[in-house]
């Protein structure tokens, strides 16, 4: 009863609110029109459709390869499961541990974070490409000789990251090596022997001389 009375009297709450909203909308539209001189064009339709997967061609360890990949596959999974290169190990799968690092176009990247479909036309180097003709590379030789690793799960990531550094800078200092390897996690060795092996592989003397003095084999 009272509500009807109110409505008869004057403006009801509902009409008042809708009126205010309409006023706001008109005001906003006027302000929009004033700032936007040209009427925005309707967006153009995209030229092609999104895809679920495609054939990619990439060079893996110097060998041109063409294969079909799903849009969801990462480069680490594609290398391991499609190309059979199981040397690239997967640790965390979130780009945190550096175990899966490979060299793409001359730069070390975590391959679990690269979508395989995105690596189309790129050059990929993995741990399998280092040993030439059954002979280990000097970096690997030094690592084996000075027992840089214990369990070895993180070794491919460390070695590929170190190789990317050595390709750019043949004689890095210890600080530069530690900086370059800061994204790699090793749970066994405490990193000293890895860094010292890289120093020895580049013809430098490790600062602590623990390995080179023969105190620790």
């Amino acid at each position: 009863m009272s509500e009807e009375k109110k409505e008869v009297k004057g403006v009801s709450r509902r009409t008042f609110i809708s009126g205010t909203v309409a006023g706001l909308v008109v005001g906003a539209a006027a302000a929009y029109g004033a700032t936007q001189l040209a009427v925005p064009k309707p967006p153009p339709a995209p030229a092609k459709e999104p895809i679920k997967g495609k054939y990619i061609s990439l060079t893996v360890n110097g060998k041109p390869t063409t294969l079909w990949v799903d849009a969801r596959w990462t480069l680490a999974n594609t290398l391991r499961n499609q190309l059979g290169l199981r040397g690239t190990t997967k640790g965390c799968d979130y780009g945190e541990c550096g175990c899966c690092n490979v060299i793409v176009d001359g730069r070390a990247v975590p391959s679990c974070m690269v979508l395989a479909i995105d690596a189309d036309g790129k050059t990929v180097e993995t741990i399998e490409g280092l040993a030439k003709g059954g002979k280990l590379s000097p970096l690997q030789e030094a690592m084996v000789k000075h027992r840089a690793f214990q369990c070895g799960f993180c070794a491919p990531g460390f070695i590929m990251t170190a190789k990317a550094l050595l390709d750019k800078k043949p004689r890095p200092t210890e600080d530069e090596i530690r900086e370059a390897l800061s994204g790699n996690i090793c749970r066994c060795t405490g990193y000293h022997r890895i860094v010292e092996s890289i120093l020895i592989a580049t013809g430098q003397k490790p600062p602590l001389e623990r390995i080179s003095s023969g105190a620790i084999p």
Partner: peptide
């Protein structure tokens, strides 16, 4: 910021 391999991407 991030370590070098992440910086590369």
């Amino acid at each position: 910021g991030p370590p070098p391999p992440i910086r590369n991407m």
